[in-house]
Design a protein around this nucleic acid. Sequence first.
DNA 1: TTAATTTAGTGGACTTTGTCCACTAAATTA
DNA 2: TAATTTAGTGGACAAAGTCCACTAAATTAA
Lengths: 152, 152
Amino acid sequence: MSKAVIQEIRAFNRFYTDLIGLLNKHLLNSAYSLSEVRIMYEIHTAGAVQASQIMGAMDIDKSYLSRILKKLERDEVIVRKASEQDGRAVVVSLTEQGEELFQELTRLTEEQVGGLIAHLSEQEQEDLVGHMHAIRKILPGRSAVQTSKNNQ
Amino acid sequence: MSKAVIQEIRAFNRFYTDLIGLLNKHLLNSAYSLSEVRIMYEIHTAGAVQASQIMGAMDIDKSYLSRILKKLERDEVIVRKASEQDGRAVVVSLTEQGEELFQELTRLTEEQVGGLIAHLSEQEQEDLVGHMHAIRKILPGRSAVQTSKNNQ
DNA sequence: TTAATTTAGTGGACTTTGTCCACTAAATTA
DNA sequence: TAATTTAGTGGACAAAGTCCACTAAATTAA
């Protein structure tokens, strides 16, 4: 458990936290917060999904999620309906309008990330992706980090 | 500007955002927020530093920073004193107590990061650090991302 | 060398984001 | 069928962050 390794990782964490922080700050010209967009992402990816699954995927408080879903529903970005199998459960999906919004947000984000790598050579871009892949392969995914109680 | 590259980077961003998010969530058993600890880090690293320099390093609102410094001063974690060269400026530094607190927080964070890589082999740890280094070398640092107006 | 402008930081008021807890209603288990 | 668990909601609140007007010192211009 070399101390040097830990310190290098922490340095990378600071670096990447700053980077993501800056990217996020600039995304936020939209009327939706990071969490809201991330929720749209989860819904988009899953198609139609139960609220509890979003909670699990995002480590978000259920009360908070419920409120956000309410807002997104009000804005006609998503629809919520009671699950047929489970009367307590709520199934959410993007409306057509929500899908369009999500595509637009995606476009903006991609543009922004594009800007980040615009000055890199083909080779550098390829290398970058390679290193990112490698890290994801080595480091544990979500489940491996002890997860906190986000459901009461 | 390959779309595939951008999508890979975005996937990594999600992955790493989650990872850091989880780490941070668990650090926060301390009485200090992420921003507060990061400010301590900046002060510790710089020795004695002007408030405006922290602002620059962190992309943080000056009003917010001022308030945090006030809290840290009240807690005797830092001392603030007017600069001798510039009567408007404030120079901050960690107190001995603040230094101790910072060391303790560092210890906890290192422990946590240690847990993250505990199950990895020596080789994997070395590779991980190598990839992180490589990414930092390829990607631009703070300055390259257009920075927002955090001062009014 | 004073008047005008800029710079550094402060504080009030506010918004946004996130948390905690008690609650309802359906589903599951005893 | 009663007791318990699970899914989500809503109120009340705390924490984090933003906006703006302000003071006082420093710098620049006249």
